Amino acid sequence: MYVDFLGSSRCTRIPRHMALCYDIGYSEMRIPNLLEHESMAEVIQQSTSWLPLLARECHPDARIFLCSLFAPVCLDRFIYPCRSLCEAVRDSCAPIMACYGYPWPEILKCENFPIDHGMCISPITNGTSSSRRMPRASCRDCELEEASTAKEILDTFCANDFTAKVRITKKNLTSPVLSDFDMDAKLEILKHGPLAKADIFPMLQQWLELDATCVQNIMRGTRSGTYVISGNIQDDKVVVNNAYAWQKRNKNLQHAVRKWKHHKCRS
């Protein structure tokens, strides 16, 4: 399926409007590429369909893997991605693709790629590193809640395992793949449910690392903000289901938070 020799391939500059691979770290690519796309128009059309997946930040090496195929670097031979790179990206990204009804494509079947050696592209990110955990697959995009009544907010608190008021700051403003977030240690725990209060902060820190897309959806492009978030505990991980921006104009949210201490949930 893949080309094994340069043949009639030629070097060409990666155009600025090829968003997937422009500014990837090299400026020229070979065409036809390793997916046998014959023209730049075809390359751009096919590569654009992968941009939403990159936006989900399913794996920090996903862009490198895809660009090694769509825009192979212009050397005297084709450099394939190693099988381990394909497997790492597939294992993190395929579950998210499945959320939207897309299977991992046959053309990217990892068995097509060489077992690791010095002449293929190996994973850059260490998947076992505590500082670069892989995002979890989530078929439900969490979003910032719009205006709700105090009663509806209280019902939300009742329906979830925990509720906390947190301040989140975005640290990395330039990374094209990953964003790093900080959470103020002085969080206010309204409900801790089955968790010990001391466990809430480290589990929310883990959530910041594992579900960057959810955090970005909540923050809506702002650099920092205070939020009241509610969620459940699944497989020893936090899943945020609801989030409200803590703002002076949101009187219903402030009223619900004040009333929560004396509120009785309906069984």
Rank of each mutant, 00 (worst) to 15 (best):
H59M: 07
Y2T: 07
I115V: 15
V239C: 06
Y22I: 01
M40Y: 09
C86L: 02
P194V: 03
E57S: 14
M183G: 08
R30W: 01
H117S: 13
K197N: 14
E188I: 11
F113P: 12
L208Y: 07
F157K: 04
A94H: 04
D91Y: 03
A62Q: 03
I79V: 15
A71D: 08
G225N: 11
D155L: 11
F157N: 02
E36W: 01
G7M: 10
R77Q: 09
D155I: 03
P105W: 01
I218V: 15
K191E: 07
G25D: 08
T213M: 05
D4V: 12
A198N: 13
S129F: 01
C120Q: 02
N252P: 15
L210S: 03
Q216K: 11
D76S: 14
A55T: 06
C11G: 15
H263Q: 06
Q247M: 11
E38P: 00
D211P: 14
S130I: 02
C158T: 06
T149S: 15
I79P: 05
A62P: 07
R16E: 15
T149G: 14
N250Y: 09
D182I: 00
I24E: 10
L144F: 03
R10C: 06
N252R: 05
V228G: 00
Q254M: 13
S92G: 02
R223Y: 09
Q46C: 05
D184G: 00
S47F: 12
D180M: 09
S92F: 02
A19Y: 14
S49T: 08
Q234P: 01
R56C: 09
R56T: 07
V166G: 09
I200M: 14
A147Q: 06
R136H: 05
S267R: 14
T169L: 13
M219Y: 04
M97F: 05
D155K: 12
W260S: 13
A62R: 05
P194I: 07
R249L: 03
F78W: 04
L204W: 01
V215L: 05
A198T: 10
K171I: 15
L53I: 06
P81L: 02
V73K: 02
S129P: 13
Q247C: 02
F5K: 15
K151R: 10
E188F: 03
S175P: 01
H37I: 01
A41T: 11
K191Q: 14
F162E: 12
C120N: 08
C67Y: 01
T12A: 11
T169K: 12
I189C: 09
C86D: 08
S179F: 00
C11W: 02
M97H: 06
A256Q: 10
G221V: 01
E106P: 00
I14D: 03
V228E: 04
K259G: 00
P95D: 11
S230W: 02
Q254E: 01
A147N: 08
V228W: 00
A196S: 07
K165M: 14
F5W: 06
E143K: 13
A150H: 09
C67V: 02
E209T: 03
H117P: 00
P95N: 09
Q254R: 14
N160E: 12
